[in-house]
Write a protein that binds this DNA or RNA. Structure first.
Lengths: 92, 92
DNA sequence: TAGCGCGCTATTATTATCATAGCAAGGGGC
DNA sequence: GCCCCTTGCTATGATAATAATAGCGCGCTA
């Protein structure tokens, strides 16, 4: 349940997803990929994710750890669900 | 990404998880299972989840739809991740 | 040394969430 | 009919989270 508490915060899943798909990103690159995130929140989330061991810094910028990659893998099925969901909403 | 926006709100994943595992719940039962959620937020989340088609009302109270169950199934791998994560945090 | 991009902080306004109290409606017993 | 209880939900004021914008300090390069 602590995991839900961490992931259930704005942008957290989006940041993990973006970093996993795009690879290492600089702070500003992440900021522009997330489009509307404010730097204060991005910085806070990056600190939380680093404390959790899901993300770390390297010379190329921020990247996901092996542990963070597991979260991403666990989250990937949601991609299919979102397609089914979009279709269902369109029909309903 | 709209799915992340919906799920990335406080209590949403917890509510889906609880309803999926416990079966149909009344409003007050859900409230006590979530322990610290306030009724205003619970009601708001239930409305959002119903609008999204993940939850619906029945004579036994609130329950997850087939679509909501898919989200739950997609979320279940997180349970394993959380164990690995807890261990990693304990070691690190 | 002046300009540039980068990581990040500061600040204020807006929104979300918490915590508590309580209302309105329905059911059972008398 | 009336009382009492549970249930679903709303109202309210306090507190915390997020948004939006501006800009600082640093390293690099010319």
């Amino acid at each position: 349940m602590a995991l839900f508490d961490l992931l259930g915060r704005r942008w957290v899943m989006g940041i993990l997803w973006t970093l996993s798909e795009q690879g290492p990103c600089t702070f500003r690159a992440l900021q522009s990929l997330c489009e509307t995130i404010s730097p204060a929140v991005l910085n806070a989330r990056l600190k939380e994710l680093q404390a959790a061991g899901f993300v770390r810094k390297s010379s190329d910028g921020y990247l996901v750890t092996d542990l963070g990659l597991e979260v991403y893998e666990a989250l990937r099925p949601l991609s299919n669900v979102s397609k089914v969901w979009a279709k269902a909403l369109g029909e309903g």
